[in-house]
């Protein structure tokens, strides 16, 4: 074929300039800041780093952050999968609208999301004033933090699954139905293996966002040290205290989680791009 055909800008020096500028931008905007986080965190030595991480409040912030993620991820896993199943396997009025509505958390600024929850579930809110009568407190305690985190991260799993499940169609599942399998069995033996890697990808993204969420959590947390302070809030707090090393030590934990996420994401993408059942090379009738 005409692989030698010249495209616009395909001269060596244009190519080199483009590559160089991409590289320089990547270094300036991504790599150097990341390196700086770790360099700052360790700028006063490992002992100070360990002391900052081992601080009672930092440990609590880490624990709370993991706790929130551990509740958020399974909730959104179930929610996202059910939703994707619903909108790709059934036709009903309002289906298109529902697919659009899933994206609301992406469209809304997290701070606004936090405020919405506060106005609804806070002491003077519609639901909140009723809950107060029964002495149930959601805002400014961990349930509130979980609620907004679930809200902010709920599209990730569904968004990963919907295109894939639409593309795969329903044939295999219909065959299952014809052969008399139960719904649960169809899901487990046919649907789940097909969407496995997309599902894991969605979970990885959900987890990354749940751990790193700042805006929405900041509104409903109440910033109580050793009680409702998550790791991102803790970073800000330390920074405002002029404890730069401490702030960067905590930030380096978040950065480490981000890097782990990227590795996991790259691995999942690699697995996804490999066909699960390679087509028979010969002899297929």
């Amino acid at each position: 074929m005409a692989s030698q055909q010249h495209r616009v800008g395909d001269t060596p020096w244009i190519r080199r300039t483009l590559i160089a500028s991409a590289l320089i931008l990547t270094m300036l905007m991504l790599v150097i800041p990341l390196v700086v986080i770790f360099a700052q965190a360790l700028s006063s030595g490992w002992a100070t780093f360990a002391e900052n991480i081992g601080n009672e409040y930092t440990l609590h912030a880490i624990g709370l952050t993991l706790f929130v993620a551990a509740l958020t991820v399974p909730l959104n896993l179930v929610f996202g999968t059910s939703l994707a199943w619903l909108v790709t396997r059934f036709r009903f009025p309002g289906r298109k609208l529902l697919i659009t509505l899933i994206d609301i958390p992406f469209a809304v600024s997290p701070v606004v999301a936090g405020l919405l929850y506060l106005l609804l579930y806070g002491r003077n809110g519609w639901v909140g004033s009723w809950l107060t009568e029964y002495d149930i407190q959601l805002m400014f305690s961990w349930p509130g933090i979980v609620m907004v985190t679930v809200f902010v991260t709920c599209p990730f799993v569904a968004r990963e699954l919907i295109p894939l499940m639409q593309q795969q169609g329903t044939e295999e599942e219909e065959a299952g139905v014809v052969l008399g399998a139960s719904g649960w069995r169809i899901f487990r033996r046919i649907t789940l293996p097909n969407i496995k890697w997309a599902l894991i990808y969605g979970v990885v993204l959900t987890n990354a966002r749940a751990v790193g969420e700042f805006g929405a959590v900041s509104v409903v947390s109440g910033n109580i040290r050793g009680q409702t302070n998550t790791l991102p809030l803790h970073v800000e707090l330390l920074y405002q205290d002029y404890n730069i090393v401490g702030a960067f030590a905590s930030a380096s934990l978040l950065a480490a989680i981000a890097i782990l996420t990227l590795v996991a994401k790259a691995f999942v993408e690699w697995r996804q791009s490999r066909p699960e059942h390679p087509a028979p090379e010969k002899g297929g009738v």
Binding site: E56, L59, H60, L64, L66, F67, A70, L71, W142
Partner: peptide, 14 residues
């Protein structure tokens, strides 16, 4: 994960 989280949360003073 939940167990570890809960343990960390409750392992605080107070």
């Amino acid at each position: 994960g939940i167990a570890v989280g809960a343990a960390l949360l409750s392992a605080q003073p107070a």
